[in-house]
Design a protein around this nucleic acid. Structure first.
Lengths: 179, 179
DNA sequence: TGACACTATGCAACAATGTGCATATAATCA
DNA sequence: TGATTATATGCACATTGTTGCATAGTGTCA
């Protein structure tokens, strides 16, 4: 149940509405912990019940009212407590790798195309990460929180580079194997 | 619902019982698609209902009877059909990276320990992959299916090496940041 | 000889995640 | 002016994953 913690971590930055959080996830922490807006709203309800966030409705004319969630002291303590607990290895699930396991049965032409699509996705993630890095971090004076995010971001950039190289190697090896 | 397909892919190799499958998952395809024995048994029941596998009970004295599952023609067709369909990006979920996002709030001493544990886990996975490679693949004459598995395994080895380097860099950068 | 691990299967309950839908207004673009 | 996008929240259902339990005989180690 670490979506709760991921949300709390975001709220240590500043109070946010569910909508803000969903966008924040898409643009930053979601690179390492994806969540849809439905999940976020549901989890916010639970966090409110557990008194880890304080939710305040703000009237808006025209648009639906915003509900802004602020992390409580109890919530901050919960984050620190959680952070000290051991983590598990991230669960691995990649269909594309499973397909490599039955090269005789799968449609290898379609697979090569899927690998190309995957490569493009990694390319565009890479560009996005680099854009964020140069826009928000390069040449700036950073506080500790920002330094942590930068470390994560740089790991993300290296990961994308590695994956691009990896899948390109797979394509080459498939060619060598005659498919 | 790709656990179904992962199981079918295993069964293209040879007929197996649920127990065999659970072990096979632990030792090979599970590196890229983890599943517990409970999940596997449940999914096998569904596959039997959909007639993608044929299940045959084999009497054994002493031990409980084995139920051996064989992929059907319908199942083989299903695998090929599935293989041609586009895959999604694997979902990302790593608590350790989330912790990097709140360096001011988390227990950084505990975090460094967790990174060390993570490093050890990647080390032992790496050793296992290398052991499997040298034992079953190096210097052997391989058919197409085996070549595919070797490609996946080599990608796995590179991935572990990359992750070890990545987390070591994170530790260094944390030191530079003063935590 | 008692404890433990291995073989072999599976249910039940619960927790977490993902998909689809529903609502409602304002601004922007073609 | 009609279509789309952005703002803003949330329910219901389906699927997937985890934990704990239950059964039961065999082999191995101390």
């Amino acid at each position: 149940m670490a979506l709760a913690e991921a949300i709390l971590v975001c709220l240590t930055e500043r109070p946010m509405s569910g909508y803000d959080l969903a966008k924040y996830f898409d643009a930053s922490i979601g690179f390492f912990w994806r969540a849809s807006h439905q999940q976020i709203y549901r989890e916010l309800g639970r966090l409110r019940e557990r008194e880890l966030v304080d939710s305040q409705e703000i009237s808006q004319s025209g648009k639906p009212n915003r509900i802004v969630h602020t992390i409580t002291d109890k919530g901050r303590t919960a984050v620190t407590g959680w952070s000290a607990k051991p983590v598990r290895m991230p669960s691995v699930k990649d269909e594309l790798l499973v397909k490599l396991y039955a090269l005789e049965t799968v449609d290898t032409k379609a697979m090569r195309e899927q690998i190309s699509v995957r490569l493009e996705q990694h390319q565009s993630k890479l560009s996005e990460f680099r854009r964020i890095k140069s826009r928000f971090y390069d040449g700036k004076d950073l506080n500790l929180n920002q330094k942590g995010k930068l470390i994560a971001l740089e790991l993300g950039i290296d990961q994308e580079l590695f994956r691009i190289a990896g899948w390109e190697t797979v394509l080459k090896k498939m060619t060598d194997a005659g498919v």
